[in-house]
Amino acid sequence: MEQQLEVPEREVSSRFKDIVKMLRFYAVLRRYGYIDPLVYALDVDQIRDTLLQALREYKSYVDGSAPREVKYKCGKDYKQGSLRCLIIYKVGNGEDADLPGEYADLFPDIIHSLVNTENDKNSCLAPIVCIGGEARLALPSDEQLSEFMQLINNGGLRYARALAMLALAR
């Protein structure tokens, strides 16, 4: 997929992974209120306000999270380790499922199987960034947000649209 990306998408995906993963988290939850404004924004202030609100809410998820033993995918490999689960959801195909079973395959960077649990439908929702085969929770910094806003100020709204597209891409 990386080779097919246009310049804004390539730059956003390489420099702002944590912001992309944060927005993917909202896409998995089917909460597009932080993604749609990036596509339809008419000015930079709207983009900044949207991202700040998304980050504020995301940080409250992180602050309320607890580490759990999970099976996660880093690159092509599956590993087991401790991750902070922002939400525990039932993923599957049934009336009691919170998310469709297909989501686990579509979003392996967000949805992780819990290890040693009575209910095998429960999954850990935790956006991860893999570096050197190791996973860490995606956590956009204020510096990353400032750099992204500078990019938008200099390069236009197409970077915000690229961010939204990457958040929704498989």
Score class of each variant (00 low, 15 high):
residue 39 V to I: 09
residue 94 G to P: 02
residue 104 A to M: 05
residue 40 Y to D: 10
residue 54 A to P: 04
residue 106 L to P: 00
residue 130 C to A: 13
residue 60 S to V: 12
residue 69 E to W: 11
residue 3 Q to W: 06
residue 11 E to V: 13
residue 116 N to E: 14
residue 13 S to N: 03
residue 134 E to R: 15
residue 46 Q to A: 12
residue 19 I to W: 02
residue 22 M to D: 08
residue 59 K to S: 11
residue 125 L to F: 10
residue 36 D to K: 07
residue 30 R to I: 11
residue 122 N to S: 14
residue 5 L to G: 01
residue 111 I to N: 11
residue 126 A to R: 01
residue 79 K to S: 12
residue 105 D to H: 01
residue 54 A to L: 10
residue 3 Q to G: 11
residue 50 T to I: 04
residue 155 G to K: 15
residue 156 G to Y: 07
residue 162 A to C: 00
residue 149 M to R: 00
residue 121 K to E: 08
residue 25 F to H: 09
residue 30 R to N: 15
residue 113 S to N: 07
residue 86 L to S: 04
residue 10 R to S: 04
residue 102 E to K: 09
residue 21 K to P: 00
residue 130 C to H: 12
residue 130 C to S: 11
residue 30 R to E: 15
residue 79 K to R: 12
residue 18 D to G: 14
residue 146 S to G: 09
residue 151 L to S: 09
residue 66 A to S: 14
residue 35 I to C: 06
residue 51 L to G: 15
residue 66 A to W: 02
residue 70 V to D: 15
residue 4 Q to S: 12
residue 5 L to S: 08
residue 27 A to E: 14
residue 35 I to G: 13
residue 118 E to D: 15
residue 27 A to K: 13
residue 164 A to P: 07
residue 4 Q to R: 09
residue 64 G to K: 13
residue 68 R to G: 01
residue 78 Y to W: 12
residue 53 Q to H: 09
residue 35 I to E: 15
residue 65 S to N: 06
residue 76 K to Y: 02
residue 69 E to C: 02
residue 27 A to R: 14
residue 79 K to A: 07
residue 89 Y to E: 08
residue 23 L to N: 03
residue 129 V to L: 13
residue 110 I to C: 02
residue 57 E to A: 12
residue 16 F to W: 04
residue 53 Q to S: 11
residue 164 A to G: 12
residue 40 Y to A: 09
residue 156 G to K: 12
residue 151 L to V: 10
residue 103 Y to H: 03
residue 8 P to S: 03
residue 116 N to G: 15
residue 29 L to C: 09
residue 90 K to E: 03
residue 114 L to D: 09
residue 12 V to K: 06
residue 48 R to W: 01
residue 150 Q to E: 11
residue 154 N to S: 15
residue 107 F to H: 04
residue 67 P to W: 06
residue 98 D to A: 08
residue 162 A to L: 00
residue 37 P to D: 04
residue 7 V to G: 02
residue 85 C to H: 01
residue 10 R to Y: 01
residue 59 K to I: 10
residue 6 E to K: 13
residue 130 C to E: 05
residue 83 L to S: 13
residue 158 R to V: 05
residue 74 C to G: 15
residue 142 D to N: 14
residue 87 I to Q: 13
residue 19 I to T: 08
residue 73 K to A: 04
residue 152 I to D: 09
residue 37 P to C: 01
residue 152 I to H: 12
residue 90 K to T: 05
residue 119 N to V: 01
residue 77 D to T: 03
residue 145 L to Y: 13
residue 145 L to V: 08
residue 3 Q to D: 14
residue 123 S to F: 01
residue 168 L to K: 13
residue 76 K to H: 05
residue 18 D to T: 10
residue 156 G to L: 07
residue 23 L to W: 00
residue 93 N to V: 10
residue 83 L to T: 03
residue 87 I to W: 04
residue 55 L to Q: 13
residue 13 S to R: 07
residue 48 R to Q: 06
residue 72 Y to L: 13
residue 125 L to M: 09
residue 116 N to L: 13
residue 152 I to E: 06
residue 31 R to N: 10
residue 33 G to K: 10
residue 21 K to D: 00
residue 114 L to G: 11
residue 123 S to H: 14
residue 147 E to G: 11
